[in-house]
């Protein structure tokens, strides 16, 4: 792990040097020979050592984040294996179009975040601030979509197992007795209750334990949403600091670290979307 990380950090520093000849001044090996950068902490010999430490710390933090989510992924795998029917029933009630829009929004925000890191390294203050706020706005848009998804499901009673109380379309119950499938029920519904079509659930009744699918759905997407909120706070903090001109070719660590965090949060969503929405 040490070599990989050292390579990573070293490679990064090399980029900085390549792009800007003068940045070598800020990375001097001599601990006291150069004027102190305002954000150079006293216990580091050089800004480079400070950057490497921050970067390694960030990667290790991301490892803990992955393990934090891993418990939920394991719970998902176990229940999907032992109770596949609740996933087949449940995923139909997630809106895959909204999920796809959110996926696109987050992937785009990863692009703007990466662009922000580059702008910080090049000292392009205005571009940096713009990119950070665009990333922030994408995160906000994601949460707005999530809000509409959640509230619709609350309305339908699609809640965690303990409160699971789906509001089923009446014709389903009536027509199921005659032995016809969901096609019939949906047809009956289309003629009879078109006005409420969004307020009730169509299709077959939930299998026993179906609420556990929504428990896992809320736990995973909820924990992810908390991470989006945390990311928004961090990005806003960066944007304020960027406006004050704190970042430049010799000091861009915090932008880089938050960028890594943001990519991980996006990556987790990229796993959540197919695992929860796109089941066959």
């Amino acid at each position: 792990m040490s070599t990989a990380t050292a390579d990573l950090a070293g490679g990064h520093a090399a980029d900085g040097h390549g792009a800007h000849g003068h940045s070598a001044d800020g990375h001097g090996a001599d601990p006291h020979g150069h004027a102190h950068h305002p954000f150079h902490a006293h216990h580091f010999d050089s800004l480079e050592q400070q950057f490497d430490s921050g970067k390694l710390g960030t990667w290790l933090f991301l490892v803990t984040e992955i393990l934090f989510f891993s418990g939920l992924f394991v719970a998902y795998v176990i229940y999907r294996t032992t109770h596949p029917e609740i996933f087949e029933w449940g995923h139909v009630h997630l809106n895959k179009y909204l999920g796809a829009i959110n996926t696109a929004v987050l992937i785009f925000s990863s692009l703007t975040m990466a662009w922000a890191v580059r702008a910080a390294q090049l000292g392009q203050k205005k571009l940096l601030v713009t990119m950070l706020w665009i990333t922030f706005a994408c995160a906000g848009a994601f949460l707005v979509v999530k809000y509409f998804e959640y509230s619709h499901k609350f309305h339908l009673g699609l809640l965690p197992a303990g409160m699971f109380n789906p509001v089923m379309a009446e014709p389903v119950a009536g027509h199921d007795a005659t032995g016809h499938g969901d096609a019939h029920a949906a047809g009956g519904h289309a003629t009879g209750h078109a006005a409420d079509s969004h307020d009730v659930i169509h299709g077959p009744p939930p299998p026993p334990g179906a609420g556990i699918f929504f428990s896992i759905y809320y736990a995973m997407t909820g924990l992810h949403a908390i991470h989006i909120l945390g990311g928004m706070a961090l990005i806003a903090w960066l944007a304020v600091r960027a406006s004050k001109g704190h970042f430049g070719p010799t000091y861009f660590g915090p932008v880089d670290y938050v960028g890594l965090y943001w990519h991980l949060v996006d990556l987790i969503w990229i796993y959540l979307f197919p695992l929860l929405y796109l089941i066959h």
Binding site: P160, A161, G162, P208, S215
Partner: peptide, 16 residues
């Protein structure tokens, strides 16, 4: 979450 919301992952009464 099991205690507050009843997510049913660990609670056998809810299928956990």
């Amino acid at each position: 979450l099991e205690r507050t919301l009843g997510i049913g992952v660990f609670d056998p009464a809810l299928g956990g």
